[in-house]
Design a protein around this nucleic acid. Structure first.
Lengths: 184, 184
DNA sequence: CGGCGCATGTAACTTGTTACATGATTCC
DNA sequence: GGAATCATGTAACAAGTTACATGCGCCG
């Protein structure tokens, strides 16, 4: 079982979904700390189904396009619970930007400032989105029963992105007023 | 050219190193935002050498074990500079823990508290190490000319890990006193 | 009727990890 | 002499991305 499998099981534990919908949900909800591609999702759905952890259901109701909708099975729910209980094994952060900062004595400070500015803008964007989600969720009282968990996840995003922005503002200053540091 | 190639070129731009030493340096200096395995480093060294970006040199001086030492070539230095100037393309964060928090309404709160505690302890450790580095680097005045850049990288680590810890303390409280939230 | 968004899927590729094989050297 | 560490390397595998093929349905 891959991590992708558990992401899928988790999302299906809330409601039945199609592969396409799963991809969209991951892109929206998990954007700042996770990603999945179609190339991972569809094969995973296939194998989950073969192992009886999910089932294909008829898309009832509205006349939908050709869309396969899946729901989680009891076995699937058990597998999900077991995974949730196991200690977290993977955590990865890879920031090319920090590599460039580390070696930045080899390039012009303006170039680095441009890198930093892109980083800053992109995380300002992320932060803004997270704050919107946060406000939205706090607005409606207890619609979903996992709402408080979701708030914890969003709060992580907010705190970390604020730290990113703090750092990038300082670092931008460092590159722009570089002379103050090097010339004394 | 893979990212691994540039990491190697960057480190070799400071001083000649062997594959094993490169691995150790990455583990120590880049630990909190990057990693490389032997399976990436050795093949990369081979191809960098074939393309003339690095050269094998004689391990002069001390009677060393069988160790191949490499130094960067002019072409290598140019390639490194060009990469440093190109916009950052990759940035990835994958936190299984947040996935589990998101779906944590399906498991016991004690289980989640245990996950959180492990996360917290591991990042306390990282933070401590970073603060030691920081103090050490600030102690000696201008030994390396890229020292200020390195301090910027360390500062990133400190800020982000502090944010992690802030969040994990809050979240731990949330799971431990869960009743306050759900029962009202 | 053309383009866009919805929708599923696969193949090729790149990237990254793990396990293993091998052997030298140092330290106790 | 045996364990730990230094050191290089490969093979197999796992994970992840990208590009592509295909086709439906809706809207202007």
């Amino acid at each position: 079982m891959r991590q992708t499998d558990y992401v899928i099981l988790g999302l299906l534990s809330e409601s039945p979904l199609s592969g396409y919908q799963i991809k969209k949900l991951v892109d929206v909800r998990f954007k700042f700390f996770w990603s999945e591609s179609f190339g991972q999702i569809f094969p995973a759905l296939k194998s989950l189904r073969e192992n009886g952890l999910i089932e294909e259901i008829e898309s009832v109701g509205v006349l939908r396009r050709s869309r396969k909708t899946y729901r989680i099975s009891n076995d699937g729910l058990n597998a999900l619970r077991q995974w949730l209980e196991r200690p977290v094994e993977r955590e990865s952060l890879r920031l090319e930007l920090l590599l460039k900062v580390y070696f930045s004595n080899l390039v012009d400070e303006d170039v680095m400032a441009a890198h930093l500015l892109r980083f800053q803008r992109s995380h300002e964007q992320v932060l803004e989105t997270l704050k919107l989600f946060d406000a939205e969720l706090k607005g409606l009282i207890n619609t979903h029963d996992n709402q408080p968990n979701v708030l914890r996840v969003i709060d992580f995003g907010i705190k970390v992105n604020e730290a990113y922005l703090d750092w990038s503002r300082e670092t931008l200053r460092f590159y722009k007023e570089g002379d103050l540091y090097t010339v004394r």
